[in-house]
């Protein structure tokens, strides 16, 4: 069957098996390997991406169910010019990652949380990521990373190389500007200086 969706702001159309999982579609068909896979039972959250504006476990969504929707992955978290989202910056500064396997999913959830609740308390952060497992960090540094991002919502972003990736889906791109979503562009528009 054919599916059409917007991935990180770029439209894609592909022929897929009806049973193909979104996580495999993103990884194997589109080459967006920043989204990971870690369990058979929807428990680990290494696969979290956004469908429209909601974080979803992409192992629990069929590619077919994403037809007509907007998908955002970790490759679309930084701005098109490579400027990192404050969440990405926070994870680096507060040692919110070790092996990095859970990190994309954690950051996607954190971004969604901060868009809804710009200044979450510790309990809200812990609740937001409670459907995801990190085996390396013991979570305290992840909480601090998200707090850092909340405290630096409008600055401190590091410029970097654009995350050009497979099939040009790796960054939000100009096309994302057309997508009415709360991805924090306003904040990024004023970002620039490094701390």
């Amino acid at each position: 069957m054919q599916v059409t969706m917007t991935v990180n702001g770029t439209g894609v159309t592909r022929e897929v098996e009806p049973r193909l999982l979104l996580v495999h579609f993103l990884r194997d068909d589109l080459g967006l390997t920043g989204t990971h896979w870690g369990c058979d039972t929807s428990n680990c959250g290494t696969c979290v991406v956004w469908m429209d504006d909601e974080p979803v476990k992409s192992c629990t969504v069929l590619a077919a169910m994403a037809d007509g929707h907007r998908i955002r992955t970790v490759e679309g978290l930084a701005q098109a010019d490579g400027t990192l989202d404050p969440v990405q910056e926070g994870f680096m500064r507060c040692h919110g990652l070790q092996c990095g396997f859970c990190t994309p999913g954690m950051m996607m959830t954190a971004r969604a949380l901060l868009d809804r609740t710009p200044h979450p308390d510790e309990a809200e952060i812990r609740a937001a990521i409670s459907g995801q497992i990190c085996r390396c960090t013991g979570y305290a540094t992840i909480v601090r990373s998200v707090q850092w991002a909340a405290d630096h919502a409008d600055g401190a972003a590091t410029a970097g190389p654009p995350s050009a990736d497979a099939e040009d889906l790796g960054h939000a791109g100009e096309a994302r500007d057309a997508v009415p979503e709360t991805t924090g562009e306003e904040r990024h528009a004023t970002a620039g200086s490094t701390s």
């Binding site: 990884r27 194997d28 080459g31 967006l32 390997t33 920043g34 989204t35 990971h36 896979w37 992955t73 970790v74 490759e75 978290l77 930084a78 990192l84 990405q88 994870f91 680096m92 500064r93 040692h95 990652l97 990095g100 396997f101 990190t103 994309p104 950051m107 970097g160 995350s163 990736d165």
Partner: peptide, 21 residues
Amino acid sequence: MLRKEDPRFVRGRGRYTDDVR
């Protein structure tokens, strides 16, 4: 010191075994 490996991981550009194609 901040980790030298993190810039690739936070961009989803780590390269794990299942990413090898």
